[in-house]
Design a protein around this nucleic acid. Sequence first.
DNA 1: CAGTTCATATAGCAATGTTATAGGTGATAG
DNA 2: CTATCACCTATAACATTGCTATATGAACTG
Lengths: 242, 242
Amino acid sequence: MSLDGQLPPKMRLLRAAAELLANSAGAAVSTRQITQLAGVTAPTLYHHFGDKEGLFDAVVAAGFEEYVAGERDFAPSGQPLEDIRRMWDNHVLFGLKQPELYLVMFGNIRPESRPAIVADAEALLEEMLTKAAAAGQLNVQPREAARSILAANVGVTLMLIAEPAAERNLELSTMTREAMIFAVSTEQAAGTSPEDSGRSSVVVAAIALNAALQASHSDQLSSSELKLFLEWLHRISTSTSS
Amino acid sequence: MSLDGQLPPKMRLLRAAAELLANSAGAAVSTRQITQLAGVTAPTLYHHFGDKEGLFDAVVAAGFEEYVAGERDFAPSGQPLEDIRRMWDNHVLFGLKQPELYLVMFGNIRPESRPAIVADAEALLEEMLTKAAAAGQLNVQPREAARSILAANVGVTLMLIAEPAAERNLELSTMTREAMIFAVSTEQAAGTSPEDSGRSSVVVAAIALNAALQASHSDQLSSSELKLFLEWLHRISTSTSS
DNA sequence: CAGTTCATATAGCAATGTTATAGGTGATAG
DNA sequence: CTATCACCTATAACATTGCTATATGAACTG
């Protein structure tokens, strides 16, 4: 069993590493396994990739292409938040489909040096969230929202991967997903600080509506109506009724 | 520099491993470093702990004691949700204070086999959440809430550890924390179902405010004002602006 | 004292990531 | 056609890793 087609050794190394990584059932993958499967010797690996980590980075980059492709395919739905949902789900499914690759990509955390892939995924999310922000659907800076959502997304995926496949319950994912989206979206009240938590739902809703009205240009009310509406809204919002 | 006090070798191994793990700045810690610092030879390690992983598990168990101690100290505040917040913060701070130990505890994810520590932490959270549920403050099953919160908590902590210490922004933590707590608590509005998400946030907020206003008897508006307010709200709510 | 069990040490194995050195191959220049 | 040169690959080995087969000492038990 060797991968010696007519492909150049560099490609064969990449494929061998990817294949071994995908089927290694959690065990570590050695450079010797890779080079043997690729039909190459050790120095070839180090000539092309410098490191074992360099090779893995390359595999990850290819995996990320796939990941991004999945993310971008259905991107322009016109509903940014819905796109965020699909990006989340795609992220989780990618992790469950290729756990080993995912762990190399997102699970290899070391202090003070985060995987380049994290920054890329974050940027991808931020890009989409910026559209949501432009549509007045965002409550916080797109960057902060992206960081927060990605953190939760990675955490959930890691937890799901760690579970026995039989017990995996995707509701953990959807529940956390909705929690995060809800938190960053203008569907909710403005502040998420502890002080706000005691407020009545009336106030919360008023704050949300206030923010939403100012962000979006609703044409359902005349400007004078809107002004009076906002004033009342403000009165309700600032009421101390807990 | 050796740790040979009068302590038994088992203890010395534990301390040596803990110390090396704490100061290893991300680099791997070898059994030889540990045994040398402990002033012991290799077989002693394997006699007492079976494995390198066994030794690490023991270190983790000790670390977990510390972690749990931090969690339990301020437990009975009478406000379960507030306790959850502190557990979250304690979790993050523990991770940032001892990143290496934390990574061994929570970062060592392998498919289909989750660290025992995760189950313990989950149980701890669930215990506290059950109190919240008993107080009618919970929206979902305590177990599901615990799993979701822990996943996000771990994700956030890993992300923060991966960042350069200078850039670490704890707002990522508080933001995600509040998002999760809000999601599982009964403080939130009724529907977070996907059907609602497609709608304009203005509409959603208006619906929420409408329902809230009709349920509670706000005294911030006169009855005539309220009537007009509700009419406008209705106009906004039924608009098809997506 | 004899015997058994626990605890530690000596020495070494197999596997790992990595590299110093050298051989081969193809293109280009004379 | 030969020579040069850059690129790519192989041979062989190195140091380090986790781990263990075997043996020695100590401490309790009969």
